[in-house]
Deep mutational scan, measured.
Amino acid sequence: KKKREHFRQLLDETSAITLTSTWKEVKKIIKEDPRCIKFSSSDRKKQREFEEYIRD
Rank of each mutant, 00 (worst) to 15 (best):
K24R: 08
D33T: 03
E51D: 13
I30W: 06
S41K: 15
T18N: 10
K28S: 13
E32G: 12
T14W: 00
I54N: 08
T14I: 13
T14S: 02
H6S: 14
E25I: 00
F7Y: 10
Q9L: 00
R4N: 03
Y53I: 00
W23T: 09
D43W: 07
Y53A: 05
E13P: 04
Q9F: 01
L10D: 07
S21L: 01
I30D: 09
K45M: 15
R44N: 15
Q9C: 03
Y53D: 09
R35F: 02
K28F: 06
L10Y: 04
S21W: 00
I37Y: 11
D33N: 00
W23N: 10
V26I: 15
W23D: 03
S21C: 04
R35Y: 01
R35K: 02
R4L: 03
R4K: 12
T14H: 05
I29H: 08
S21Q: 03
K31E: 15
S21P: 03
R35A: 01
F50Y: 14
F50E: 10
K2S: 15
K3G: 09
S41F: 06
K27W: 06
K45V: 15
P34Y: 04
S41W: 11
L19Y: 08
S15M: 02
R48P: 08
R55E: 06
E25Q: 05
T22W: 09
I17N: 00
W23I: 07
S41T: 11
E25G: 00
S40P: 04
C36R: 00
E51G: 04
I54Y: 01
K45P: 08
K38W: 09
W23Y: 03
T22R: 03
K45Y: 10
E32I: 02
E52Q: 15
K3N: 08
K2T: 04
I17A: 03
Y53P: 10
E32N: 04
K3Y: 14
K46D: 05
K24S: 14
D43F: 04
T20H: 11
S15L: 10
D43C: 01
C36Q: 04
K46S: 03
S42W: 04
R55H: 06
E49M: 07
K38S: 14
R8I: 06
I54L: 13
K38P: 01
R55M: 12
K28C: 13
K45D: 15
I30N: 06
D33E: 11
E51T: 04
T18C: 08
D33S: 01
H6R: 10
L19F: 09
D56G: 08
K27P: 08
F39P: 02
E25S: 04
T22V: 04
R35C: 02
R8C: 03
K2I: 06
T14D: 02
A16Q: 09
K2R: 09
L10Q: 00
A16P: 06
D12G: 05
S42P: 07
K31M: 13
R55A: 11
K2P: 05
Q9A: 11
I37E: 13
E49I: 07
D43L: 10
D56V: 03
E32T: 15
A16I: 06
K46M: 08
Y53F: 09
R8Q: 01
R35V: 02
I54G: 11
R55K: 07
L11Y: 00
D43P: 02
R44P: 10
D56K: 15
E49R: 00
R55Q: 15
T20W: 06
L19E: 15
I17T: 05
R8M: 02
S15Y: 12
V26T: 06
H6I: 06
E49W: 05
C36A: 07
F7T: 10
L19M: 12
I37S: 08
E52V: 10
R35W: 00
E32P: 00
K3Q: 10
V26G: 05
I17V: 12
A16Y: 07
W23G: 08
D12R: 07
I30G: 01
T14P: 00
R8T: 02
Q47R: 11
E13S: 00
C36G: 05
E13T: 05
K27E: 11
H6V: 11
E51W: 01
T20R: 08
K28H: 11
T22M: 02
K46A: 12
Q9I: 03
T20Y: 07
R35I: 04
K28D: 12
R55P: 06
K1A: 05
E13C: 03
K27V: 05
R8Y: 15
E49G: 03
I17L: 08
K38Y: 12
L11A: 02
F50K: 03
I37Q: 06
E52R: 14
T22S: 13
T22Q: 10
E51M: 01
S15H: 05
S40R: 02
A16G: 15
K31W: 10
E49L: 01
C36M: 03
D12P: 05
P34G: 04
Q47K: 15
K24Q: 14
T20K: 10
I29S: 09
S40K: 02
K38A: 15
E49S: 02
K27R: 12
K38D: 14
E51L: 04
K45T: 15
L11G: 01
T22P: 05
W23K: 10
R48V: 13
T18W: 00
Q9G: 01
F7R: 02
L19N: 08
E25M: 02
I30P: 14
Y53K: 04
Y53C: 04
R8K: 06
S41V: 13
C36P: 05
F39K: 00
K2G: 12
W23H: 15
I29R: 10
S42G: 07
C36H: 03
F50V: 06
E52M: 12
I17C: 08
R4Q: 09
S21M: 07
S40V: 03
L10A: 02
K27D: 08
E32F: 07
